[in-house]
């Protein structure tokens, strides 16, 4: 049985001539890791701003935990929007003291979350001395402070180096394993593909897709091939009746997709019968990136 943690219906917001969010409907189930995708300016941050009470909606409704939204319901949510926001002159601990006072949380939680994100040694240094990665981790610590049922992260890896990105990703996966619901807004598709269970795609304020990551990634996007005799291989591929698209990738291998589902052993047999032996054959797994670009260009 799944419980709906967030329900949005007909949400709209206009900035002058720009329709930032247009009649958005969305449901997020408890326990899912929900990716909110879309290019820059597609309305992700505006939507989250409305859901978190800092942006005024023009019309439509949304419910948290099945109830009308209030400041109280926001205390059950841990959220970071855009860049980490803290009082720069206060230390990590002093900043979290303020958050714990707002959210009515025991002060003892502060050490726990600082340890969880690996900032306990820097707890008493001012926020302004932190690197971007540390600031981002403090933001996550702050979001975790009230042990919330739901975590909302807007571009949590923005501006981080690859190591920082990997650290934050690990952290998110850990949190997801503990059974929390997470809403992750991002334009980094790789990130969403690695951590999310469900996703929706926004484009200029409209929802153009909502589905599960697993379904979207089932099956494959053709094969990657190479052989000692590339010329002959190329020719055979071109002549194959079920071939759809053929190109060569950066490794000099042939990338081929099929019109209909192909029994790969049939195809392989065809190549051998015609005198070509493969040195490389692999499936190309589907990626969100490709689907995303197809959705957006549609």
């Amino acid at each position: 049985m799944s419980e709906t943690i967030l329900e949005i219906s007909g949400l709209s917001k206009r900035y002058g001539r720009i329709q930032a969010v247009n009649q958005l409907d969305l449901q997020v189930q408890k326990g899912s890791v929900f990716g909110l995708l879309g290019p820059n300016g597609s309305g992700k941050s505006t939507t989250l701003g409305i859901l978190l009470g800092v942006t005024q909606k023009d019309s439509g409704d949304y419910k948290w935990f099945g109830q009308e939204p209030t400041a109280e319901s926001r205390k059950r949510i841990g959220a970071i929007l855009e860049s980490p926001t803290f009082y720069p002159y206060l230390s990590a601990r002093q900043n979290l003291n303020i958050v714990s006072e707002i959210k009515n949380v025991e002060r003892s939680r502060i050490n726990e979350v600082l340890t969880q994100v690996g900032l306990i040694e820097r707890a008493d240094y001012p926020f302004k001395t932190f690197s971007l990665g540390m600031k981002q981790r403090l933001a996550i610590a702050s979001a975790l402070l009230a042990d919330p049922e739901l975590l909302i992260l807007d571009e949590p890896t923005n501006g981080l180096d690859p190591q920082g990105i990997a650290e934050i990703r690990e952290l998110i996966i850990d949190i997801a394993k503990s059974g929390k619901t997470i809403i992750l807004a991002s334009h980094l598709l790789d990130e969403v593909q690695k951590v999310c269970t469900d996703f929706a795609v926004l484009k200029t304020g409209n929802k153009i897709f909502q589905g599960s990551v697993a379904e979207s990634l089932s099956g494959n996007d053709g094969v990657e091939l190479s052989s000692d005799n590339m010329e002959q291989l190329q020719k055979l591929c071109n002549n194959y009746k079920n071939s759809f698209r053929i190109s060569t990738n950066n490794l000099g291998r042939i990338v081929m997709s099929f019109k209909e589902e192909e029994d790969i052993s049939q195809f392989h047999k065809y190549l051998i019968d015609n005198g070509v032996v493969l040195t490389h054959l692999s499936y190309i797994s589907k990626s969100l990136e490709k689907q995303f670009l197809e959705l957006l260009s549609a």
Binding site: G53, V54, A71, K75, L81, T85, F86, Y87, I98
Partner: peptide, 21 residues
């Protein structure tokens, strides 16, 4: 004005303070 320039007013409200509070 610090609350605006550091954007902490926004974070206070996201954290569960009402604008009235």
């Amino acid at each position: 004005t610090n609350e605006y320039s550091y954007r902490t007013i926004r974070q206070n409200i996201i954290d569960g303070m009402s604008p009235k509070s």
